[in-house]
Structure formats: structure tokens, C-alpha cells
């Protein structure tokens, strides 16, 4: 895997973590969004290796498609995801399907959280999670 992508994902994850530790509710939500982005990238990256194709099959089924995952590591340990191999044709489609679902669900959650934040502000006049706690007593 590309080291720069890896670094980017990790840094984004760190920034997201920093944000969900804040008292400001909007910043927390932004933090959750950033965390989700990095998790999505992480999962997709797990199924990605250099020099392979998108999981879209071209042509007829009997030609070219078929066996795609083969262990090429000499020590006999299989990778959890598709390793480097000469026969690889496609990216792992499953992780992509997973993440596609995750992205949509993430939208639902973000929308809900935002409306919740908005209603909290309307009811209590604050965006401070600590202050909210005090108000509740």
C-alpha cells in the first residue's frame, strides 16, 4: 500500500479524534465526519493494490474473470485482502460495497446529529456540552 495514503488516513484519524474530544457540539460533529471519512478510506484502501482494475467486469464471463486472489507471499501467510499477484484482475468489490453503505448511513447520522445540535441550541441556548450538563443538573 502506498505509504502516503496511509499517512494521510492516519493524520485525518488523529484530527478527528482531537475534534470529538472538544466541548463544542458542532466541532464534535465535524470530528465525527472526519473520522468517518478516514475509516472509509481505510477500508477501501485495504482492498486496493497497485496495478489492478476496478471491480467492473468487461466482456463475457468466461474470459479473463474468475480466479483473482492468489497468495504470492513466500512464507505461506495469506493476506486478509488481495495481495500482489500477477493474476489479480480486480479490486476487492466487497469492501467497496461495504463502504458505499457506510457512506450513506453516515449521511443519515450526520443529518440527525446536526438537527439534534440545532434543537439543543434552541432549547438550551448553548453549544457547550459541559454547559448542557450543568443545565440538566
Amino acid at each position: 500500500m502506498n505509504i502516503f495514503l496511509l499517512l494521510t488516513i492516519s493524520i485525518a484519524f488523529g484530527i478527528g479524534t482531537f475534534l470529538i474530544l472538544r466541548r463544542d457540539i458542532i466541532k464534535m460533529i465535524i470530528g465525527i465526519v472526519i473520522l468517518c471519512h478516514s475509516v472509509h478510506m481505510m477500508i477501501v484502501a485495504m482492498g486496493a493494490f497497485d496495478g489492478i482494475k476496478a471491480p467492473i467486469i468487461e466482456g463475457s464471463p468466461d474470459k479473463g474473470s474468475g480466479i483473482i486472489f492468489q497468495d504470492s507471499l513466500s512464507d505461506g501467510i495469506l493476506a486478509p485482502v488481495v495481495p500482489h499477484t500477477t493474476e489479480v484482475l480486480h479490486m476487492d468489490p466487497l469492501v467497496q460495497a461495504l463502504v458505499l453503505t457506510a457512506i450513506v448511513i453516515n449521511l443519515a447520522i450526520t443529518a440527525f446529529l446536526l438537527i439534534l445540535a440545532y434543537r439543543i441550541y434552541e432549547e438550551y441556548g448553548t453549544m457547550d456540552a459541559d454547559e448542557l450538563r450543568r443545565l440538566r443538573g
Binding site: L5, V44, A45, A54, Q96
Partner: peptide, 11 residues
């Protein structure tokens, strides 16, 4: 855009 790099056009 990263998803495009990762060959995931649907994503």
C-alpha cells in the same frame, strides 16, 4: 477523488 485513485468509481 481518493476513491477514484483507489479504483472505486461507485464510491
Amino acid at each position: 477523488i481518493v476513491f477514484i485513485f483507489l479504483l472505486a468509481p461507485d464510491l
